[in-house]
C-alpha cells in the first residue's frame, strides 16, 4: 500500500469509492422506486414468481417421489425412468418451453409449470431411488423379525433413513426450478422474468436488476431454508458432525476390556 502515501493517489482512491457508492445508492434508490411504483405491480409479480416456483416444486416432488418408490426395487424400471427423466432434463428448458406451447396450444402459466416440473423431477427421483436402496436390508429384516408391522417398518425404519436423502433432492430441485423461473417471462408466464426481459429490451437497468436480484434472493432463501430442513430431518445417528454423545468414547470403559471387542 505504499502508493497510498502519495496524496494524489489517496485522493483518486477516495473519489473512486465515492463514485461507486454514488452509483450503488442511486441504483438501489431507483430499484426501490421501481418497486414502490404501483403501475409496475411488483406484488403481483412476486406472487406469480412464487406460484411458478412452488407449483413445479410440489409437482416434481409428487412425481419424483412416487415414481421413485415404485421403481426403487425394480432395477430395469429404475434404469429406464432415471434415464428417461434425465434425458428430458438434458433438453434445454427453453426448448421444452416451446414444445409445451405446441403441446398445450397455449402460452402462459401451464406450459411454464410443466417445463419447470420436468427440470425438478430427476434430482428427486434419483435421490428417492438411492435413498430407498441405501436402507440396510438387514435393518428391515431385523424389524420384521422383531414383530414390527409393515407400517412400523415404514415409519420407524425406512422413512427416517430415506427422508434426509430425499430432502437433499428437493433442495437441489427447488434451487434449479427457482433459478429457471424467469424463463416463463418469455411466454407470458409472468413473474420476475417480465422485469428481466423488459429491462433488457428497454435498457432499464433498475428494472432488470429488480427481477434478477429478486430471483437470486429467492433462490438463496430456498437454499438456506431447505438446507435447514434437511438438517432437521437427518437423525442424529446419521449426521456427519458428531453429536455430543460421542464425547465419552474417548474414555475407556470402566468394565474393562470386555466391552472393547
Amino acid at each position: 500500500m505504499h502508493f497510498l502515501k502519495h496524496r494524489a493517489a489517496r485522493e483518486l482512491a477516495a473519489s473512486l469509492i465515492r463514485v461507486v457508492k454514488e452509483i450503488e445508492w442511486t441504483m438501489i434508490a431507483k430499484m426501490l422506486q421501481f418497486i414502490g411504483d404501483p403501475t409496475n405491480t411488483f406484488w403481483q409479480h412476486t406472487i406469480d414468481t412464487l406460484k411458478l416456483s412452488i407449483v413445479p416444486i410440489i409437482l416434481a416432488l409428487l412425481i419424483g417421489l412416487s415414481l421413485g418408490v415404485l421403481v426403487a426395487r425394480r432395477p430395469v424400471a429404475a434404469f429406464i425412468s432415471a434415464n428417461l427423466t434425465g434425458l428430458m432434463r438434458a433438453v434445454p428448458t427453453l426448448a421444452v418451453l416451446f414444445i409445451m406451447i405446441l403441446y398445450f396450444n397455449q402460452i402462459g402459466f401451464l406450459p411454464s409449470v410443466v417445463a419447470l416440473t420436468v427440470l425438478g423431477i430427476p434430482p428427486i427421483l434419483l435421490n428417492t431411488i438411492a435413498g430407498l436402496r441405501g436402507v440396510d436390508p438387514s435393518a428391515i429384516e431385523a424389524g420384521q423379525g422383531m414383530g414390527m408391522t409393515q407400517q412400523q417398518v415404514l415409519f420407524r425404519v425406512q422413512i427416517p433413513l430415506v427422508l434426509p436423502v430425499i430432502a437433499a433432492g428437493v433442495r437441489t430441485a427447488s434451487v434449479q426450478i427457482i433459478a429457471t423461473v424467469p424463463i416463463a417471462g418469455l411466454i407470458g408466464g409472468g413473474g420476475y422474468g417480465d422485469y428481466i426481459l423488459a429491462g433488457i429490451n428497454l435498457l432499464n437497468i433498475p428494472q432488470l436488476l429488480v427481477g434478477a436480484v429478486g430471483i437470486a434472493l429467492l433462490a438463496l432463501l430456498a437454499e438456506f431454508a431447505l438446507a435447514a430442513l434437511q438438517r432437521a430431518v437427518t437423525p442424529a445417528g446419521l449426521r456427519a458432525t458428531e453429536p455430543a454423545a460421542i464425547a465419552p468414547s474417548a474414555r475407556r470403559s470402566p468394565v474393562g476390556s470386555l466391552a472393547d471387542v
Binding site: 440396510d136 438387514s138 429384516e141 423379525g145 422383531m146 414383530g147 433413513l161 442424529a236 445417528g237
Partner: peptide, 22 residues
C-alpha cells in the same frame, strides 16, 4: 405372526441395528 415375533428374540448375522437410533 406379529404377536408371535414380539414374543421371540431374533438375532441375525448382519445385526441389523437401526443406524438412526441410539
Amino acid at each position: 405372526p406379529i404377536a408371535l415375533r414380539r414374543s421371540i428374540g431374533y438375532v441375525i448375522q448382519q445385526v441389523g441395528l437401526f443406524p438412526h437410533l441410539s
